[in-house]
Write a protein that binds this DNA or RNA. Structure first.
Length: 248
DNA sequence: TATGAGTCTCGTCAAGAGCG
DNA sequence: CGCTCTTGACGAGACTCATA
């Protein structure tokens, strides 16, 4: 097994275990090992818009443990909890509304990245190019991106905005009546697929960027709260000293 | 220096969320 | 309700580091 195969093997097993466990909730039993991983999992997946506090996570874990003793948990409820994760933008914006210091994730990419990642602004492809990994992407006006310098790995490409408002591809797609032969239909399907892949590629990049931002934000919040906590503890000690005068 | 292990990044798929 | 967006999961390649 390759090195990354091992990692994936572990990941896959964990996931399978989790899902099998969820499925097994129909008969009511939860293995301990999975209850643990589930509770960790919920830190990112709990609730629609909120991040669970440590206490909440602990509560969830406790809930799992108690469920083990009770052997009765609503399968659908649990599945719902695990099934969907709130968007990072949403979470961070909620955080920022709670805490003024927390910056909001912007709707559009910041200017630091040069051009907007907005897919809508991209030129629609007219042909295919091959990436460094051998995958085929649609060719647009490609220019070596300076974004590559930020990540320090293989060069990526940023897509220049098209000169026309509506790219040719869209016009073709918008006129299905012009497609007659199976070959044309196949071409159209391929073109649509390539477009979808290109959009999703960019969306994944953006999602990862947001996730990084989100994690950074949480880390800085932890730092702030730790300082705050330390101060409060010191204050408490001071007050204790004041309220309990020495006897000697 | 070759090699194995660990980690990171990227592209893709799939499924749920959200919106018109 | 259909379409698009978002994001977890996965596979693959590149990179780093320790060690034989």
């Amino acid at each position: 097994m390759s090195k990354c195969g091992r990692k994936k093997y572990i990941k896959t097993n964990l996931r399978q275990m989790t899902m099998e466990t969820i499925d097994s909730q129909q008969d009511g039993s939860i293995p301990d090992s999975v209850a643990e991983s589930e509770s960790a999992h919920m830190q990112t997946q709990t609730g629609q818009n909120s991040i669970p506090t440590l206490a909440q996570v602990a509560t969830i874990a406790e809930t799992d443990e108690s469920a083990e003793s009770e052997r009765v948990i609503d399968f659908h409820k649990r599945r719902e909890i695990l099934s969907r994760r709130p968007s990072y933008r949403k979470i961070l914006n909620e955080l920022s509304s709670d805490v003024p210091g927390v910056p909001k994730i912007e709707e559009e990419k910041s200017e630091e990245e040069g051009t907007s990642p907005n897919i809508a602004a991209m030129a629609l492809p007219t042909s295919i190019y091959q990436t460094s990994t051998g995958q085929y992407n649609e060719e647009t006006e490609l220019a070596p991106s300076h974004m590559a310098a930020t990540t320090g790995d293989m060069p990526t490409y940023q897509i220049r905005a098209p000169t026309t408002a509506l790219p040719q591809g869209v016009m073709m797609a918008a006129s299905p009546g012009s497609l007659h032969s199976p070959q044309q239909l196949a071409e159209e399907a391929t073109r649509k697929r390539e477009l979808r892949l290109m959009k999703n590629r960019e969306a994944a990049k953006e999602c990862r960027r947001r996730k990084k931002e989100y994690v950074k934000c949480l880390e800085s919040r932890v730092a702030v709260l730790e300082v705050q906590n330390k101060k409060l503890i010191e204050e408490l000690e001071t007050l204790k000293d004041i309220c309990s005068p020495k006897t000697d």
